[in-house]
Structures are given as structure tokens and as C-alpha cells.
Design a protein around this nucleic acid. Structure first.
Length: 556
DNA sequence: AATAGATACAACCGCATGATG
DNA sequence: CCATCATGCGGTTGTATCTAT
């Protein structure tokens, strides 16, 4: 942990919040009159606080502020104590095991740092939060999924169990959707593109009681929104400029229909999203309001304090199952570590990524591997960048995608419980017919199969088709037949190549209207951490009305 | 060596919630 | 039932430090 200079800059009143601050901290002594110090704590202050707490114990922070002699508000004292001074704090970087646990716990709990930290003795929620934010940034930067596939699977599987036994709240369901997005992050991006370009969202969740908009928000705090928006710049454009970007990712409206057409009419209503080709009244504002202005059932002026709270998606589980993750077995991610060890370091870029081996081992190892794979597959990226229209960013994305292809292939070991087979089986198991979802009209028609076809980077025709299986049914058995595996992750990832083609170098490039920077960023993120607008879409689908999930059949 | 950018971390801020009167 | 207080939580910001150029 780095030591900062004690450079307290200002002494300010703690009641920055219209005089409520001191009240908030229980400072009843002339609220607004006491100058309270802010900024880094000095060792003297630390000593005073420790001394006081030794004498009087924790709690009653208002009293601490009043009687300890510290010119710090009670809240500041509490934080200082909790995060830095209390005994048994474990300092230093997270161990790989801790990181793994954090990831698993986050997959399960979302941004409930206070809950997560209870599984990590000696750590603080702030540490974990910082770690996670860093992870998000790294994943964003390198196009990696936030969650390892096995973690996603475990969470999903667990959720299925949880659903059967404990039940999952609507709140909890969102996080599983999030995990689904993580698992299928790459092609999800393609789905996003299709959604955007076809002017409708794929899912038509029946949301009798909760605004999709609220759920949408519920799943993603602002940090995620930032992540998502940077991952998918078109989101920003939706908000900040026009819809010109929509449709700019090169999708041909006629190329691919992934989703039930019957859903198309409902979705814009549900999500406040208009077809980009539908010159309706300012999609921009629609989107924006979709976040802030739920349907009429929800107050727009005073958001529902529960539903509207910016909280990680959550399909989180009841605390009763909290022990599950802590006991999860070693997973393929550690195999990645092996790869990290075995992989000969190549370019200095690798060093730049993993320049601090003492730091987060798992994530850095993953990044390291990603870079290594990226380099090793540069020839492959060349292939995908053969397009005469390929830009450097295209190629970069292609590399990322290829990298992911390899990485995911690492999970393709059919013997592994977390291998691709499992993933895809799991995938197949996901419901399209569950409960309210199956209230939808049967999939209509003309283009729901044919237009699932696309050509993967290997030149194979790959089909996306909806899977009419019910998660809950499968979930009860939890036994997936290998025969159900119709394709490999490689194919799945080739789908992202397809997305690559569609979004960048392909036929519809003429639709590209946005800045190359945004495109580059967007395309770069096509890799894995695609927890984005699709997440938003899916995020509004409750567990019992899951969206159609598609399996890919390599038709060759 | 200087600089810029990235990273990690501490601290702050606003809000929600439960307790209490 | 309502207002106030105390506390905790999660998101955000500021800055020291590290790293690459």
C-alpha cells in the first residue's frame, strides 16, 4: 500500500450537504460552526483516534468527533478506523485466492461490498471496491470478461438451484442476466449490434410490476454505466447526440434476425428505445428517459428507493447459499495462470500489462495471457483484417477477438465441468419458455432461422437458433447431455468475428457515421467485457421470463 | 531527466435505513 | 405516525506513486 504524503489541503466544514452533514454525523455542537478537517489523516490524528477507541470502543462516532479532540467528522473517523486503523486489517495486495473469491462473490452478490467483505477477513469493503473498479477498467481496456466463464456458470447454476429452493427475487434475477451477458459477452455484442440496427430489442420481458427501465438501472451503477458506455459508445451517443451511431456498426438489417419478431413492437415500449430507423421523437431522449423515467407506474420524480437504486444487477442469492462460492474448486482460471507461467513472455507490451507481478495475480495473469495470445495469433488477426476497409482499430479488435477465441477454447475441454460444453449446454438450457416469457407469441417466421446464419471466420456457416428449453427444467436436473452441444466456443467466437465483419469491415460499412475513435473503442470492446446495452436489455428480464438464448449450430 | 498517462488507494459525498423519542 | 439522529453503504473523487515514452 502506498504511502501518501500527508498533505491535508483544506480545513473545511464537514457540513457540505447544506448544513446537514454535521447533523448527519451527529455533531450537535453548532452545526456549521465547527471547522472539520478533511483530507489525508496524519499519524497524530491516527494516534488520537486509536487512543480514543481503545478507551471508549467503536461506535458513537459523533461522540468521537466531539470528544476525541479530532477535528474530523464522525463519518471520517469511522472510515479511517474501519479502513485503516482497526486491528487485524490485512494489508497488501490481494492474493490470487482472494481475488478469485472476490470475483465469485461479486458474481453472486453484485456490488454489495459490505456483504462481500464479510467473506474476506481483514479486508475492507473499500479495498474490494477499489479492486473491482480496477478490474473493470482493466477488463474494459483489454476487452476481457469481468467474470471467468466458470464463475458465471457456477453463479448461474447456483441461481438455478436457488430458484428452485429458495426462490430468487426479481432483484436477484438481474445479476444472472448479467452473468449470462458475461458468458456470452462476445456474441452479445453482436446481438447488441443487431438489436440496434434492426430497430428493436430482442427480448420482450413481461414486466408486470417493475419497470424495465428501473431494472435496467438497478443492475448497473454508474460505474457500470460508465463501463458500458465506454464499452459501447453508442450508448453515449444515444444520450449525447443522435442516433446516428445506431446502425453504424455495419449491420445489415437483413442480414440477421436473431429474435422473435413479435417482440419487436413491444420492446421499444418496454425499454424506451425506438428503432434507430424509426425517426420517432428523439430516441436520444427516449433512452435517457428510459433510465430516469420509468413507466407510469413508477414515480418519475422520486424514484422508488428500492427499484431505482443503482445496485448491481442482482439475481443474487439469499444469504443462505453464501457458502457456496467460498468452497468452489479450483477452476480453469487457474489454468490460465499456468498458461501465464508457461507462456514465454514476448513483447514488451506484455510487460506493460503485467508489470507488477506482485499485484493482482489472477487478473494480471489473464491479461498477460490475453496479450500473449493476442500476439501469438497475430497472423489470425491479419486474416480478419484482410478486408480492404479494415482499420487499425479493426485489426486491434480482431486480435482481441482471436485472443478470446483462444482463451475460450481453453475452456473447451469437454472433461472440464466448466468447459465449453458445459457452457453451451448451460446455454441451451436457458429458458425461452419460462413463465411470462412463454406468453409470447410463438416465434414468427420469415427470418428467424435463415437470418441466424452467418459465416464465421473459418468460413463455416454458423446458425444461431433459439433454444426452446426451459432453464428451470434443465436446472432441476443439472445434467447436460454432451449431445446437446452443437458447436464449440470457437464457433461462438467466430460469431464475434461475424460481428466484426458486420460492425466493421463488412458490407454495411457505409452506414458508419460516427467517429472513428468511438468506433475503435466500441470495436475494441467487442471482445468480452460486453456487459452492455444488451445487459441492459436482458437485465430487465426476470428469471422466469428469460430471453431467447441461442445456440449456434455449425452448419458447415 | 522530464513528462504524461495509468494505477492504486484513501477519503469524501450522498443517500438509505434503522433506532429512538 | 413523524421527525430526527446515528450509522452504514456504495459511488465518486483526489492524489501520490508508478511506468512508459
Amino acid at each position: 500500500m502506498r504511502q501518501k504524503k500527508n498533505k491535508t489541503k483544506v480545513d473545511v466544514r464537514c457540513n457540505s450537504q447544506t448544513g446537514s452533514k454535521l447533523n448527519d454525523e451527529g455533531n450537535g455542537e453548532g452545526a456549521g460552526e465547527v471547522l472539520l478537517k478533511k483530507g489525508p489523516w496524519t499519524s497524530d490524528e491516527d494516534a488520537m483516534l486509536v487512543e480514543y477507541i481503545k478507551k471508549h470502543g467503536e461506535g458513537n462516532w459523533g461522540e468521537v468527533q466531539r470528544h476525541s479532540g479530532l477535528y474530523r467528522c464522525g463519518k471520517s473517523c469511522r472510515l479511517r478506523w474501519a479502513n485503516n486503523l482497526r486491528p487485524n486489517l490485512k494489508k497488501g495486495a490481494f492474493t490470487a485466492e482472494e481475488e478469485r473469491l472476490i470475483v465469485e462473490l461479486h458474481a453472486k452478490m453484485g456490488n454489495r461490498w459490505a456483504h462481500i467483505v464479510t467473506h474476506l477477513p481483514g479486508r475492507t469493503d473499500n479495498e474490494i471496491k477499489n479492486y473491482w473498479n480496477t478490474r473493470i477498467r482493466k477488463c474494459q481496456r483489454y476487452g476481457l470478461p469481468l467474470y471467468p466463464p466458470d464463475v458465471c456458470l457456477q453463479a448461474l447454476q447456483e441461481s438455478q438451484h436457488g430458484q428452485g429452493s429458495n426462490g430468487i427475487t426479481d432483484c436477484d434475477r438481474g445479476h444472472n442476466d448479467f452473468l449470462l451477458q458475461n458468458i456470452y459477452g462476445i456474441h452479445d455484442t453482436a446481438f447488441d449490434s443487431m438489436k440496434e440496427n434492426m430497430g428493436f430489442l430482442p427480448y420482450v420481458p413481461e414486466l408486470p410490476d417493475i419497470s424495465s427501465d428501473i431494472i435496467l438501472l438497478k443492475g448497473y451503477s454508474t460505474q457500470y454505466c460508465n463501463f458500458l458506455s465506454s464499452t459501447f459508445p453508442y450508448l453515449n451517443h444515444l444520450q449525447e447526440s443522435t442516433m446516428s451511431y445506431i446502425g453504424s456498426r455495419g449491420m445489415d438489417r437483413n442480414d440477421c434476425y436473431l429474435f422473435d419478431h413479435n417482440t419487436s413492437e413491444k420492446i421499444p415500449q418496454s425499454f424506451g428505445v425506438h428503432s434507430p430507423l424509426d425517426p420517432g421523437p428523439s430516441t436520444h431522449s427516449s433512452i435517457r428517459h428510459s433510465h430516469s423515467l420509468p413507466n407510469s407506474n413508477v414515480s418519475s420524480s422520486k424514484p422508488n428507493s428500492k427499484a431505482g437504486k443503482l445496485e448491481l444487477p442482482s439475481l443474487q442469492y439469499p444469504e443462505t447459499v453464501s457458502g457456496f462460492w467460498g468452497t468452489s474448486p479450483p477452476t480453469p482460471l487457474y489454468e490460465s495462470d499456468d498458461a501465464f507461467i508457461q507462456c514465454p513472455p514476448s513483447p514488451t507490451a506484455l510487460e506493460s500489462i503485467c508489470s507488477s507481478p506482485h499485484k493482482s495475480g489472477l487478473l494480471d495473469a489473464l491479461l498477460y495471457q490475453a496479450k500473449t495470445l493476442n500476439c501469438s495469433k497475430s497472423h489470425c488477426s491479419d486474416k480478419s483484417s484482410n478486408s480492404s476497409t479494415a482499420t487499425p482499430s479493426d485489426r486491434a479488435e480482431s486480435s482481441v477477438l482471436n485472443m478470446f477465441e483462444t482463451e475460450w477454447e481453453d475452456y473447451a475441454d469437454p472433461l472440464s465441468p466448466f468447459g465449453a460444453a458445459s457452457i453451451l449446454n448451460e446455454h441451451q438450457a436457458i429458458s425461452t419458455n419460462g413463465n411470462s416469457w412463454d406468453q409470447l407469441e410463438p416465434v414468427q417466421t420469415s427470418c428467424d432461422v435463415e437470418n441466424f446464419l452467418f459465416e464465421n471466420s473459418a468460413g463455416n456457416i454458423v446458425k444461431l437458433e433459439s433454444v426452446n428449453q426451459v432453464l428451470t427444467h434443465k436446472g432441476e436436473n443439472q445434467t447436460m447431455s454432451e449431445a446437446e452441444l452443437n458447436c464449440t466456443w470457437s464457433d461462438f467466437l467466430h460469431a464475434s468475428d461475424w460481428h466484426d465483419h458486420c460492425s466493421g469491415h463488412s458490407k454495411n460499412q457505409a452506414m458508419m457515421t460516427d467517429s472513428s475513435d468511438d468506433l475503435a473503442e466500441n470495436k475494441h470492446m467487442a471482445g468480452g467485457a460486453s456487459t452492455s446495452s444488451q445487459v441492459q436489455a436482458v437485465g430487465s428480464i426476470t428469471w422466469n421470463n428469460l430471453p431467447p438464448i441461442y445456440q449456434m449450430s455449425d452448419l458447415h
